[in-house]
Design a protein around this nucleic acid. Sequence first.
DNA 1: GTCTATAGTCAGATAGAC
DNA 2: GTCTATCTGACTATAGAC
Lengths: 216, 216
Amino acid sequence: MSTKDKIIQTSIRLFNQHGERAITTNHIASHMCISPGNLYYHFKNKEHIIRQIFALYSEHLHTQFKPFQPNEDALQNLVGYLDSLFELMWRFHFFYDNLGDILARDEVLKKDYITFQSSLLEQVEAVLLALRAGNVITIADDEVTELAHMLKMTVSFWTPYVKARRLSGELAQQDIYQGILKVLLLLKAYCTSQSLSQVNELRTKYQQLASDRDTV
Amino acid sequence: MSTKDKIIQTSIRLFNQHGERAITTNHIASHMCISPGNLYYHFKNKEHIIRQIFALYSEHLHTQFKPFQPNEDALQNLVGYLDSLFELMWRFHFFYDNLGDILARDEVLKKDYITFQSSLLEQVEAVLLALRAGNVITIADDEVTELAHMLKMTVSFWTPYVKARRLSGELAQQDIYQGILKVLLLLKAYCTSQSLSQVNELRTKYQQLASDRDTV
DNA sequence: GTCTATAGTCAGATAGAC
DNA sequence: GTCTATCTGACTATAGAC
């Protein structure tokens, strides 16, 4: 792996562990056993490191989330979608721990973020409409956007919500499953009578995956 | 107003406007036209200012949220509860913009926060049970806690969610009403057939209050 | 209680040798 | 590409006069 890539990977790990604000460029360099000067050879400054991480984040999201194929099972597609989404939240949750602060310091990143979130909203709306077309949920047109926002907010802020409620900040895989359960809770309210039992089975599955802890 | 109180009020205002990280003790002092030395006469450091603000926040929450009286209209009580909650979120939203960071820097505050959130969760659960007792909602016992978490998360992170999606960070009263609508969306899914029309009326009311903008 | 002046600290970033 | 050495700037906090 190139030094540049190592800087990115180390930064992601340290940011997630200790928070973006607590980790300085010196910390990143010393964790990699390189000099601060070397780090600055590869990146103009800390903002540029974060921009690069954000690029990975949005790239991952765009490659993972293909639109549903009409002939596929809508519910099964949803499960894959959720898993990828929360995998992403797991890898980049530091970003949402400090979202306001990170965006306030970098106008360029903020613009990219807003653009990206707009397109993400449309994707989520498309998923909801596909679920409706597949008879998985029933939802009025004028509630689609509102539910999409709720889903997006839940996925974004679930990890900060969990982390804030425990003393040692470390996140576990189980916490992510709890978040998936919250998404399913949101969807459950819109399920058709045919899909309700399937969604309940899904919830049971994730409850088992999450059950190593008694949190939440 | 005492200098000490003015420091608190000015801090809240500046934190909400520009973010807690961006505002230094020097900013606070110079905005009040007092010296940094004077500020440090009244507060040991910035952490202590934030602790004091958190004390106001939790005090407000505890005084505003009386338990329901059994003979009162449960739905009407809920509306008052929501208004107070979002008033609080309006006044202290800077806290949730940077929650992870603020708590990571102050162990004492973090412990207080966790304790407070625990008791808040119980309050929300009590409200849900009261709504069920008042035939406003139907909900299974094992979903009460999960829904309470969703409500709490929504109220906490609605403002950061909104702020992150616009370039000028200023929040408007309408944004708060959009948040109330999200809470009502969550509850609507659990409404009884008797209460559904009332909740829909409530949603219409808040939609009008929020309609000066086309956001969300 | 309030001021001025300043010490201490540290993150962010650069210059120039190798 | 990488290092050492160093600088700048900003923020926190204190000392001592008024």
